[in-house]
Design a protein around this nucleic acid. Sequence first.
DNA 1: TAGGCCATCTGGTCCT
DNA 2: AGGACCAGATGGCCTA
Length: 193
Amino acid sequence: MPAEAASSGGAAEPPGGPREQRRRRRGRARARTEALLHTLKRSRRVKANDRERNRMHHLNAALDELRSVLPTFPDDTKLTKIETLRFAYNYIWALSETLRLAEQCLPPPPAAGLLPARRAAAAAAAAAAAPPSPGSDAGSWLSSASPSAPSLCASASGPSSPATSEDCAYAPAESLRAFRGLPAAAPPGAPCR
DNA sequence: TAGGCCATCTGGTCCT
DNA sequence: AGGACCAGATGGCCTA
């Protein structure tokens, strides 16, 4: 290709010459691929954002479902996320504790001897929620370090305690007594009344 | 106005 | 490769 060889050889290329045109074409192509890459990345990001939003919506829906099965409060304020989780944790513990005590104290079947579910639930609710003293923030009764349950915090290693060594959730030992069907204190092996 | 809560975006990591 | 999950950042809204 003689023409090419000649142009590459020496004299300054005239503006708009074939070399210049090629360079411009390459520049445009590169810009186009970069733009394409950018839009591709962008669209992936947008999609990922969409999925993430969706995921969080599902998570929140599940949290709402959890709220709906937890006993509501007089003031009916919506529990925050962390409150919901902590309260559920305590509620489950209180329910199982109620069952445990009931099994300990009640005569074996027939079924009539079983603790009515609603009473058990009410007791557990009281246990899990109490003491919801007015003016106290959620942290004091739902959160990790409740001063009202020092003994249970101390015995956090016990399998039946809702407290963990790291996060000593409120342990409603006192409020379990609110349930009239249960003894004030029923240490393991204590005679049932 | 400060602080708490929340939704959303984002980049990184892990898993399928 | 693409999706799920996670944690940090950011900004908006609300309340004391």
